[in-house]
Structure formats: structure tokens, C-alpha cells
Design a protein around this nucleic acid. Structure first.
Length: 212
DNA sequence: AACCGGCTCAACCGCCGGTCG
DNA sequence: TCGACCGGCGGTTGAGCCGGT
């Protein structure tokens, strides 16, 4: 179902959701060879995916510093502020939210923020000065930070790679996700910060990847 | 329990700009 | 200078989930 007919000499290209095997191939290959030309990487790794697909999967999901979990109020304000300033420049906005991807911010904006903006009583961003005034008011009344230097943002959370680093076979890798999440909950509950996830420095220091 | 509609988000598509031969 | 290739970006889609009835 995910195969597409191509020129006779071209390999079939897979589309759709990534499988655990594909994830592991990509993670393992990048861990051993680093990122490179994505089309070449896809072929060299033996993935029947386009370079674009591999890049997207890595950047949005597999990358070790991808921060997963709920957008915090601080991040929401920052997104609103930066969107008021730059518009739909998601990648630019994402650069100010460490660990967040442009795709995640874009989805968050469309599903959470834009939805509320469509309500008649809410401020329309067509007038940038109005928006900035709103944000200033919100920031001053809530005392939430509106700059992008909050050190808490540097903390990262669970990702497939972090789990992969603790085991060497596919079944254990995916079977361990639930256990990892439970461990994550324990870490969170033992901290006074509500958003304290796995520290990627610890995870990378424990890296045990297969050489090929 | 079954159905339905809304929501979320991973993934794809198409376009554009940069680079290289 | 030009064309091919590649990466990056924003927009869109659709499968799966979830809550309401």
C-alpha cells in the first residue's frame, strides 16, 4: 500500500508511518556515520525512503534533543509573541524554543491557538501593535517570561533514541517505551519542576549503539 | 456497546533558494 | 551562466484517538 511504481531501475519508495525497524536503522546509521546528504544516507542505510522522509523523521521525532510533551504556558506565550512578530515562520520560531520542532509548533498553533483566535471576542492579529499590546499586558499581569532564554527549556524528554540507547534489540526497544514513560513519571514526581524530563546528556553518555 | 464528530499530530506535498559541477 | 540536485520551509492531509450521545 505504501509502494509507488517508479522507473524500472529505481527502487520502490515506501511512504506512510515509519516502522520500528526503519527507525532503528536510521538511528543506528546516523549514530555511526552522522548526518549527511539525506538521499545518499537513505540509500546507504538501506532505507526505502526518500531523503526528505528520512530528514523529516529524524528532525521531528528521532533526534535525541527533541523535547516531547505538553507545551508549557511559557512556551505558549513565547510562540504567540514570536508569531506576532514573524508570522508563520515556524522554523524561525522553533529556533527560539529549544527541543521543539517547527512541525510541532505549527500543529500547536493551528490546533490550540488559532482555534481560539477565531472566536469573535478574541483579539485578531491583523493588527500587530494590538497583538503586542495584548502580549505585554499578559506578560505583565501573569509575570510569565516572554523571552527565549528560559533555561528550563533546555531540558529534554523521552524520545525513541533515548529508549534505544538502553537496549540493543528491536523488541526490547519498543517494549521498553512504556517502562521508560513510567520511569519518566517517577523522575517528574521526584522533582519540584513539573516539566523535568530525561536529561539528554545522561542519555547520550549511556549510549550503546551497534557498530555496523 | 456502538456510533459519530472533533481533535491531534505524524507524514507528505509542492515550492523556493542555495550550491555545485 | 545554466541546469540539476538538495535541503528547508510552510501548507495540507489523513489515520488514529477520544469524548459525547
Amino acid at each position: 500500500m505504501e509502494k509507488k511504481a517508479c522507473k524500472s531501475e529505481e527502487v520502490e519508495v515506501r511512504k506512510g508511518p515509519w516502522t520500528m525497524e526503519e527507525d532503528l536503522i536510521l538511528i543506528n546509521y546516523i549514530a555511526n556515520h552522522g548526518e549527511g546528504v539525506w538521499n545518499s544516507l537513505a540509500k546507504a542505510a538501506g532505507l526505502k525512503r526518500t531523503g526528505k522522509s528520512c530528514r523529516l523523521r529524524w528532525l521531528n521525532y528521532l533526534r535525541p534533543d527533541v523535547r516531547r510533551g505538553n507545551i508549557t504556558p511559557e512556551e505558549q506565550f513565547l510562540i504567540m509573541e514570536l508569531h506576532a512578530k514573524w508570522g508563520n515562520r515556524w522554523s524561525k520560531i522553533a529556533k527560539h524554543l529549544p527541543g521543539r520542532t517547527d512541525n510541532e509548533i505549527k500543529n500547536y498553533w493551528r490546533t490550540r491557538i488559532q482555534k481560539h483566535m477565531n472566536k469573535p471576542a478574541e483579539i485578531c492579529y491583523s493588527n500587530q501593535s494590538d497583538c503586542e499590546l495584548l502580549l505585554d499586558q499578559q506578560a505583565s499581569t501573569s509575570q510569565l517570561p516572554c523571552n527565549g532564554t528560559n533555561a528550563d527549556f533546555m531540558e529534554t524528554s523521552y524520545s525513541p533514541l533515548s529508549s534505544f540507547n538502553h537496549c540493543n534489540n528491536i523488541e526490547a526497544f519498543y517494549g521498553q517505551q512504556q517502562q521508560q514513560q513510567q520511569q519518566q513519571m517517577m523522575v517528574e514526581s521526584s522533582s519540584n519542576h513539573e516539566d523535568n524530563y530525561w536529561n539528554m546528556e545522561d542519555i547520550w553518555s549511556m549510549q550503546i549503539l551497534n557498530a555496523d
